[in-house]
Design a protein around this nucleic acid. Sequence first.
DNA 1: TACTCTCCCTTGCGTCGCAAGGGGAATAGG
DNA 2: CCTATTCCCCTTGCGACGCAAGGGAGAGTA
Lengths: 115, 115
Amino acid sequence: MADAEIDLLRSSLDLLILKALSWAPMHGYAISEWIDDATRSVLLVEEGTLYPALHRLERRGWIESEWGVSANNRRAKFYASTAAGRARLRAESRIWQRNADAIAAALRRSSPEPA
Amino acid sequence: MADAEIDLLRSSLDLLILKALSWAPMHGYAISEWIDDATRSVLLVEEGTLYPALHRLERRGWIESEWGVSANNRRAKFYASTAAGRARLRAESRIWQRNADAIAAALRRSSPEPA
DNA sequence: TACTCTCCCTTGCGTCGCAAGGGGAATAGG
DNA sequence: CCTATTCCCCTTGCGACGCAAGGGAGAGTA
């Protein structure tokens, strides 16, 4: 019913991943936990969504990966943001905010005529 | 490159249509113009996107249609919001706003740890 | 040993925006 | 009168991507 979550995720998943990686490299599982609490569980990223997304971002050169060992002593693939990824985060998150604001304003309109 | 528009449209098109119809019935062409200026041209709704969306909303019972004549004396199909559509607009736009706020907050975080 | 938790991955499916087509009727400009 | 433009409706084929539902393997715990 409330598909708004799904589609908002679609608009922001790449940005959220890049944001998670903006401080230090992280592995996929940790990224999904970060998104969960950074959005206060508004967005729940399924594994079948997350891993393809990571591969996509890597294919596009926004992030790069390296195998390592997690804090829990598990084999994990660590992803790090590239310079292109950082630039993308800066540019696209501004655009995202501007557009979200425009939509929010439209949804708040109290008259059909332009303000 | 900036696919953010596309995906934000995906999350909000139904709501924007319902919002456009919240004052009076409108035909499709006018709805797309309303969205264009209510969002200050942030979202441009292609006809190949709009008309299927209208049919979808009608199938789901959020809106209903009737043929008529436009202000420009053209044959046009006028869509009106149903009671279910109005309820949906109220509920889903609140959810949309809450979720967009959560994402925006995540994108603004200055530390990986929860505030 | 058995179980849970952490961590990675894939396939099949459905939805939906876009690009690119189509048509027809009313008005404006020559 | 004829043509171009505007308004208004529609469809098909495609690609992108989230989800559900599967699978696997190694580490800690009881």
